[in-house]
Nucleic acid binder design. Structure first.
Length: 117
DNA sequence: CAGTTGACAGTCC
DNA sequence: GGGACTGCCAACT
């Protein structure tokens, strides 16, 4: 490794992933942010890039506080996210019919969306 | 160095 | 209201 990452004084203190972890960790309890909002905070439009960071380093941050623009939790983790939402009293929007599956819920972004500074 | 993949978003039908 | 296509950005092979 002949200096794979040369520490320059002009480069940002954190990588893209590091910045994403800080933003997600800054989300207050009972609130949620969309991938696009997190990417916008980083000055980038890579909503998918944010999702990658969550898939790789997301295990160290409240990933359930990061949801899709549709108000739906990350794919493949609807059940895990639901347990956290109910535990944090996060505003959810469920279909009026009880026939709806538990994993068919949606978040009320109108009330749960956290606006960063 | 280029191609492919991926916890997405926005717009059109 | 829901489904399909395209655009964007970052990490991996």
């Amino acid at each position: 490794m002949t200096g794979r990452r040369m520490p320059s004084a002009g480069e940002p203190p954190l990588d893209f992933g590091g910045a994403v972890l800080l933003i997600v960790d800054a989300i207050p309890r009972g609130r949620v942010m969309t991938y696009g909002d997190v990417a916008a905070e980083l000055g980038s439009r890579g909503a998918r890039a944010v999702g990658h960071v969550m898939a790789t380093e997301g295990s160290s941050v409240p990933w359930w506080r990061v949801v899709r623009a549709d108000g739906r939790p990350p794919a493949g983790h609807e059940a895990e996210a639901l347990a956290h939402y109910r535990a944090e009293a996060t505003p959810l929007r469920r279909g009026g019919g009880v026939d709806h599956a538990e994993l068919d819920y949606r978040l009320d972004l109108a009330a749960a969306r956290h606006l960063p500074a």
